[in-house]
Simulated scan of single mutants.
Amino acid sequence: MERIDVVSVLIVDEEQKRVLMVQNEALWSLPGGKREEGETLREAAIRETKEETGYDVEVDHVVQITERMSSDHVVFFTFRGRVVGGKMATEDPEIQRIEWRDLDEAEKLMPWYGNLLALWHSPSVYREEPGGGHTIQELTTEEDFRSAFPLIRQLRNGLTEEKYVDLLHAMRKEGYRLFGLARDGEWMALAGVGIRHNFYNGRHLFVYDLVTDSQQRSKGYGAMLLTHLESWARANGCERVELTSSVQRLDAHRFYEGKMGYIRTSWVFRRDLT
């Protein structure tokens, strides 16, 4: 029996309480379609939405997974998405109309989804795990530390290599640990963390530093590394992960809140692990 993956994207305008939909013949649905060979589910969702609606989108949470067994085994993945560019148009000759439909109308046209706004706020998260030559490891040797300096300097550009090494050794005595994701021996992303305790977070993992190489962003490396650290934190008895981000870093804020599912309070971001 052939396995077929089908993706769709739920895009909600919360202010206007509308959902982006497309009409294919007599059927109204969310934009989406079949995943092609060599694509990840995320890549397929972005491509299909662009082809059917003309919009460039970001996708993060998986809000529903269903499957159908007949002559084929079809698995349907629905992502939460947001429009980040483009304009309404279609490259797909099967798409007859593209419209923003009111939430109540959309729920009547697609009753299998139920409450669309509840789905939109679903806490489930889609992650692409490392593969194809990716490795994640803790940096523990002098050689590791020095090889990571060029990437750390992208985040902390006031450091010299010697000051970085001296501070790193001092910080490690206080519990700081440095993890990295490498591809073919090159660091793609790094994260400096430490386990801390306080009254409001209990035992938790605090992320001091998180950086993805400027030439490798939007490829999922930061998400892969942060996901690994969440698993490591759970295994080490942590109740949540916390980090801070400056008010100017809007792209980082969208990553933490949208892609990783963190809850924001001012410039502090938290994710419960229990």
Rank of each mutant, 00 (worst) to 15 (best):
S122E: 02
G85Q: 04
R82P: 01
R177M: 03
K17P: 02
L117R: 04
G202I: 15
G85S: 05
M1F: 12
T49S: 06
D104M: 15
E25K: 15
R271A: 11
I263F: 09
M88N: 03
F149W: 00
R101T: 09
E162N: 07
S70I: 13
V12G: 04
H197N: 08
L103W: 04
T274D: 13
R172V: 05
L109K: 12
G222I: 08
E43N: 13
G33H: 07
W28F: 14
E142R: 08
G133K: 09
D213G: 14
N201Y: 14
K50Y: 08
Y113C: 07
G54F: 14
W187P: 00
M21I: 10
T66C: 04
E36M: 08
S29A: 11
V84W: 08
R249M: 13
G133D: 02
E105A: 05
L243I: 08
F77N: 02
L116A: 07
E2S: 13
G133W: 11
F76W: 04
G86H: 07
T227D: 09
D92P: 02
G85N: 03
E43M: 13
V62H: 03
V125M: 15
D102Y: 10
T244Y: 07
G192F: 12
V63S: 07
S29N: 06
R270S: 11
T140R: 02
L139Q: 01
E142M: 09
Q96I: 02
E105G: 02
V165N: 01
R217K: 15
M188G: 15
K34T: 14
S8A: 08
H73P: 01
G261M: 09
Y126N: 00
E186M: 10
W100V: 04
V62C: 05
Y262N: 01
T40V: 12
Y176I: 07
Y164P: 00
R3D: 01
R156Q: 01
L178A: 04
L116Q: 06
V9D: 04
K87T: 11
S231E: 11
H228Y: 15
L178N: 00
S147T: 14
L210N: 00
V7S: 03
D166W: 07
G258D: 03
